[in-house]
Simulated scan of single mutants.
Amino acid sequence: MKKNKYIFLFASVLVSSFFVSCNEDSIDTVNSPIAYEAIGGYESSDEIAAGNLITKFSFENTISDSKNGITGGVGTNVTYGNGIKGLAYKGSASSFIAYSTVPSVLVDVKSISVSMWINTNPHTGGAQSLYTLPKTSDFWGNIFTLVEGTGPAATMLLKNHIQKDVTPSIAWSGQFMEHSGDNLLKNMYGTWKHLVWTYNGASSTYSMYIDGKKLVLPASLSKRYASDPLTGGLGYGTLANSNVSKFIIGGFQQHLGAPWNAPDGWMLNYTGMMDEFRIYNAALSDNEVVALYKLEKDNR
């Protein structure tokens, strides 16, 4: 009996030591930082094509470009709301931001990727401009994205625009990539959606991504030409902006005043929300777009 007592006492000491050791390990585990799992080989969204990221607006109670490229911003009726990462730009029928200085790296962009999160609702009566790289000598401007008014189906008719002004001039210098008909964007309203479009000057190819997924586009939309391909037109090639002046978020270049005329009645300010607006001077790869979507969604 005495022997059994010693065995029991020894076993109790071992068990107690085990639990103390486990508790200490648990405390160390709780206090130690847990490393994030890399996504696509990246730890944060800013690591993706870092050398090509030329503009970034996060709208954390500021209208400033964190890359300090686009500067001199003046906001009109700008407010903020909860975004996909922190705060976000909150548009209205009278809101926009005008920037007076545009960096040469944006003016001289040859290929491009534009990335942003938007959260908006259907509208009627005209087109809303998300952003514009203006052109003093032209009605439309250089590079911009428009959302047209929609009908009961609540599909989004989105238009992207690019420019190629060269000497000698080409027939199709300014081009709209229009998501209409079978290419209307579905399920885009009432929630945060990640939107990326790219243009690759080397291949004259346009691509669109929604929530990291590359859309299947017909060649008539994805392949861009300098003139009619049915009559021997060549690929559109690299971009060439001209007469660039200022930059605008949430409006058309006509909202800036001179040298443009007043906005037409159909030219509407963007009334939705926008977050993590980025411009790259390269066409992001499929994997880079997926990683960007996942990392920003993960608040990284």
Results as ranks from 00 to 15, higher is better:
Gly91Ala: 12
Pro168Lys: 00
Gln254Leu: 12
Ile118Glu: 06
Gly83Ser: 13
Gly232Phe: 15
Glu47Ala: 03
Leu234Asp: 11
Pro229Arg: 06
Ser173Val: 11
Ala219Gly: 01
Ile170Met: 01
Ser113Leu: 07
Ala219Glu: 06
Arg278Phe: 04
Ile70Gly: 00
Asn68Glu: 13
Ser21Trp: 14
Ala291Arg: 00
Gly125His: 15
Ala240Gly: 01
Thr29Leu: 14
Pro122Tyr: 12
Asn269Arg: 04
Thr136Asn: 06
Met267Ile: 11
Pro229Phe: 02
Gly69Cys: 11
Asn200Gly: 02
Tyr199His: 03
Tyr293Asp: 06
Leu9Met: 15
Lys110Gln: 09
Asn121Glu: 09
Lys2Gln: 14
Lys186Trp: 05
Ser100Val: 06
Leu230Ser: 08
Asn61Cys: 07
Ser95Gln: 11
Leu157Gly: 00
Val20Leu: 04
Asn243Phe: 03
Val74Phe: 15
Ile63Tyr: 03
Met273Leu: 15
Thr71Cys: 02
Phe96Met: 10
Tyr42Asp: 09
Lys186Asp: 06
Ala226Ile: 04
Ser66His: 04
Glu296Tyr: 10
Tyr99Ser: 00
Ala171His: 03
Gly235Glu: 06
Ile143Tyr: 03
Gly51Arg: 09
Lys294Trp: 02
Gly250Asp: 05
Phe277Thr: 03
Thr55Cys: 07
Tyr131Ser: 05
Thr198Tyr: 13
Thr191Glu: 11
Asn187Tyr: 04
Asn31Pro: 06
Gly250Trp: 04
Ile27Thr: 12
Gly75Lys: 00
Asp108His: 15
Asn68Thr: 08
Phe59Pro: 00
His255Tyr: 05
Leu184Glu: 12
Gly257Cys: 13
Ser12Pro: 02
Ala219Cys: 03
Ala35Cys: 07
Thr79Gln: 10
Tyr236Met: 08
Met273Val: 06
Ser92Leu: 10
Thr132Glu: 09
Ser16Tyr: 12
Glu178Leu: 14
Gly251Ser: 05
Pro33Phe: 01
Gly201Pro: 02
Asp25Pro: 10
Lys193Leu: 12
Ser21His: 14
Gly126Lys: 08
Ile170Gln: 03
Thr238Met: 08
Tyr42Lys: 04
Ser227Leu: 02
Gly212Asn: 01
Phe19Tyr: 05
Ser45Pro: 08
Phe8His: 06
Gly141Gln: 12
Thr150Gln: 02
Trp140Pro: 02
Ser45Asp: 08
Met1Ile: 08
Asn142Val: 12
Asn61Leu: 04
Gly126Cys: 14
Phe247Glu: 13
Lys67Glu: 14
Ile97Tyr: 03
Ile249Asp: 04
Asn187Trp: 05
Gly72His: 07
Ser242Thr: 11
Ile118Tyr: 01
Gly126Ser: 06
Lys90Asp: 04
Tyr6Lys: 10
Met273Lys: 15
Glu47His: 09
Ser220Pro: 01
Val166Leu: 01
Ser17Met: 11
Asp298Ser: 09
Lys2Ile: 08
Ser137Trp: 07
Lys2Leu: 10
Ser220Phe: 03
Gly141Tyr: 05
Phe18Glu: 15
Asn142Met: 14
Gly201Thr: 09
Tyr209Thr: 03
Ile143Met: 12
Ala171Tyr: 01
Leu133Tyr: 00
Ser21Thr: 12
Lys5Ser: 07
Asp182Val: 05
Ser26Pro: 02
Gly125Arg: 11
Pro259Met: 05
Asn82Glu: 01
Asp211Asn: 09
Leu234Tyr: 05
Asp165Glu: 08
Val78Gln: 00
Ser173Leu: 09
Thr55Val: 15
Lys164Ala: 10
Gly232Cys: 12
Thr155Trp: 12
Leu53Cys: 07
Ser220Gly: 05
Leu284Arg: 11
